[in-house]
Design a protein around this nucleic acid. Sequence first.
DNA 1: ATGGCATAATCCTTATGA
Length: 258
Amino acid sequence: MKIATWNVNSLRVRLHQLLDWLDANRPDALCLQELKMEDHAFPEAEIRAAGYYAAFSGQKTYNGVAILASSPPEDVTRGIPGFTDEQKRLIAATVAGVRIVCGYFPNGQNPESDKFAYKLAWLDALTRWLKAQALAAHPSLVLAGDFNIAPEAADTHPEWKGEILVSPPERAAFRALIECGLTDAFRLFEQPEHSYSWWDYRMSSFQRNFGMRIDHILVSPALRNACRACAVDKTPRKSERPSDHAPVVLELDWPYQK
DNA sequence: ATGGCATAATCCTTATGA
């Protein structure tokens, strides 16, 4: 089973790149973030024609998340239960017996801003819900998306300066997620040095590999031993008019037979 | 080397992202 996540930074602009990528990679499930469109504009017919079903939660201009799958997503839920949030940042569904939670975590802007407080509150609500409910109800669970956190020093270019996405409170919030029993699938495998998933559009950041690893796939204990490979696919980032994020792809030996 | 880019909407300027 192949599960992937990709922040497309406008599904309208990236639709054809998405369809090409689906054709070339045939994931069983794909988590999308930053649709930047309302549900009525979601390109359901094009995606269906590519052989995929979709569950989505969109909004105008910002945010918006979706789960595409080769079989119809089941038991779809939107938002973090118990957390009132106008921003469409979370969707969950079951695909082939795996509970898939797709998130577009808040950016936070800077540690002094209200948006930063919102980011930490959002992460706290997510962590509490996973710990108290979701993981118990669904032992085989994947949390995938744009976390907007580079968890360790190795996840940013060595010369990275800013505070946001790397601050101690953000990294502590990431560790709290891990402490729910989740594993960063990317780090289960040997990876190229300086592996990132996002590069700023400015200053030729991609050409200089001046990036950060902020898109992640976390797996629950029941899935940990089923992980076979996990990698960043830089191919779409090299195309014309790319998203600033690259897809991250996890291969699972699932249903697990050992 | 963080600015200078990309996107959407308010649409020729602003808000936001990371």
